[in-house]
């Protein structure tokens, strides 16, 4: 039983009439609680792949089955709903909204879902406190350290209890010490709640956190887990 499985995904971009092939016919799957690392050189299409898995972008062909549902057949609204309910995303540059406070950034995930404001706030505060940011709720991202910003981003990823986390270079912008601090926090929760994670990285991500490593190269994907052990 898989949380998500990708079958024969292909993606190419049309650049002024020229087809730029990124990858073709790649297949893989992730089990509950599994941490999957997708590695590969810069520009091979890791971010593009994560974008497709999250439903923010569409593949040219292939299927993505998430919890028995085919993402490729869903409408944009259904995909948004899916992200809102089940998927957490985390990015290299955090992608916090700069004009919003830490609390507002986290709360945003729970908005437009019929959860009342007080309840939203309660849940957001709870997770921020858990991540040690209880006294920084009303700070803007710019008023926080890089590590603190990344913790806000983790809180945002986790606040709605997702079953899958898609992480694009989650530790790409921070020093090693901060990176391990962040990963410890992230992995703690991932393990505790049995969350699956697909992380993309061209190197900064410490492989010890990954259960499996897939290498994206020349438009194909290779399971290189054995090779690294």
């Amino acid at each position: 039983m898989f949380v998500l499985s990708a079958e024969n995904l292909s993606k190419s971009f049309d650049i002024r009439g020229n087809q730029l092939k990124i990858f073709s016919d790649i297949s893989f799957a992730v089990k509950p609680g599994e941490v999957l690392l997708i590695s590969g050189r810069s520009g091979v299409g890791k971010s593009t792949l994560l974008g497709i898995l999250s439903g923010l972008d569409r593949a040219n062909s292939g299927k993505i089955i998430f919890k028995d549902k085919d993402l490729t057949a869903m409408t944009l609204n259904e995909l948004a709903e899916l992200r809102a309910m089940h998927i957490g995303m985390i990015f290299q540059s955090f992608n916090l909204i700069q004009t919003w406070t830490a609390l507002e950034n986290v709360e945003a995930v729970l908005m437009h879902r019929g959860i009342n404001a007080a309840e939203r706030k309660k849940q957001a505060i709870a997770i921020l406190e858990e991540l040690g940011l209880g006294d920084r709720l009303s700070n803007l991202p710019a008023e926080l350290s890089v590590g603190q910003q990344q913790r806000v981003a983790i809180a945002r990823t986790m606040v709605h209890n997702p079953s899958l986390i898609l992480a694009d270079e989650p530790t790409g912008d921070v020093d090693e010490e901060t990176a391990s601090e962040i990963m410890t926090l992230l992995m703690e929760r991932v393990k505790k709640d049995n969350i699956s994670m697909i992380a993309a990285s061209h190197g900064a991500f410490n492989k010890k956190y990954a259960d499996r490593e897939l290498l994206l190269k020349d438009g194909k994907i290779f399971d290189v887990t054995q090779a690294t052990i």
């Binding site: 609204n77 992200r83 809102a84 945003a108």
Partner: peptide
């Protein structure tokens, strides 16, 4: 633009 992209990524629907 950026903010809107983030909100979409965290699941805000287009009509919102």
């Amino acid at each position: 633009r950026h903010e809107i992209a983030i909100l979409k990524a965290i699941g805000w629907k287009n009509n919102v």
